[in-house]
Amino acid sequence: MAEKKLTFEKALAKLEAIVEKLESGEISLDDSIAAFEEGQKLVDFCLKNLSEAESKVKKLSRDIDGNFELNDF
């Protein structure tokens, strides 16, 4: 079940699908517990994704060998 790399976009879409499935009522209690658990994980993932520390602005430049490097702006 665990995906290699869950993107925010996919997580949000999955969460939406789970919410709709739960609301449809056509789901057993077992399944709804499982769906709820997965949904909760997705909520955690999405909120964590949105709450990571503020990122610094960087400047793209090239070193003497022409390799890319990032410096603080």
Partner: peptide, 26 residues
């Protein structure tokens, strides 16, 4: 992001409500 957070919170609330309904049924 604030708008997105609200959206996720709304999803979470809907999930919660749906599970509550199910539990109430049981």
């Amino acid at each position: 992001y604030n708008e997105l957070k609200r959206k996720i919170v709304r999803f979470a609330q809907r999930m919660q409500r749906a599970v509550m309904v199910k539990i109430e049924h049981y």
